[in-house]
Amino acid sequence: MKKRHVQFFARYGVILLFAVTMLVPFFWMIITSFKDPVKVFERPMNWWVDSFDFSNYLKFFTDYDGWRYIWNTVRLCAINIVGVVVSNAIVAYAVAFMKFRYKKIIMVLLLITMMMPGTVTFFPQFIVYVKLGWYGTLMPLWVPAFLGNAYYIFLLRQYYLTIPQPILDAARVAGCGHFRLLWQIVVPMAKPVFIIMVLNTFISVWSDLFGPLIYILNEKDRTFPVLLSYMNSSYGNAGTLPSIMAGGILSAIPTLLVYFIGQKAMIKAYVFKSGDK
C-alpha cells in the first residue's frame, strides 16, 4: 500500500511539473496582456500585474476594430462547418453502403489524397483559383469544405460500418430511402465523429492564418489571425505587445472551450476498432 502511494505521488508530481512548464508561457501571456505597455520589459521581470486593467483588451476592440474581424472569422467558420458536415456525411455514406464494382480504386484515391502534403498542393491550388477567377473572392476559403475531405470520409466510413446491420435492414424494410436513412439513422449514430469534425473544423478555420493571408485582399474581410499578424508587423514594437497578447488570449478562449466540451467525444471517436463491422 505504501509503495503504491509513493508511486502515485511521483507520477502525479511529474505530470504537474510538466503541466506547470506548459503553463508558464500562458501565464506570461496573461500578465503581459494586463501590463502597461511601458512596463512590459522591466527588469527584473514583474511576475504579477500592478492592476487588472482591461484597457489593452478594450483597445483591441476600439483601436483595432476587433469585432469586425471576429465576426468575419465566425462567419467563415460557420459556412465551413456546414460544408464539412454535409459533404462528408453524404460521400462517406455512398462509400460505406452503396455498391460499386471499382470501389477499391476510390478507396485508394482517398488514401492518396489523405496523404497528399498540403504544402505540395497549396501553391498549385492557388494557380487553379486564379484561373477560375476566384482570387480576390472568399470562395477559396469555403468552397473546398463542400467538396469533401478524404480524412473525414475515411473516418466516417469506418464508423458507419460499425452500425449494426439489423438496424439498417429494419429501416430499409420500413421503407426508408437513402436520404432518410442517412439523416435519421446513420448520422445520429455516428455523432462522435461529427462532433470531432465540427470541432476540428472550427479550430482549424478559426486559427488559420495562411489561407486568409493569401486569399483575402480586402482589408475589411480579414480574419482574426490575419489581424493579429498585421498588428505585429505594421505596428510592430513593444508598445503593441500587450494588445496583441490580449488578442491572442481572446482568440484562444473559443478554441479552449470547444476542446474542453469535445474532449470526451474526441476520445470516443478515435477508439473504435477497424474490424468491428
Binding site: P225, L241, I244, A252
Partner: peptide
C-alpha cells in the same frame, strides 16, 4: 496539455 495547440499561431509565435 492541449492548450498550446489552440493558441493562434501568430500569438504563439510572438509569445
Amino acid at each position: 496539455y492541449y492548450m498550446p495547440c489552440v493558441v493562434s499561431s501568430v500569438a504563439a509565435a510572438l509569445l
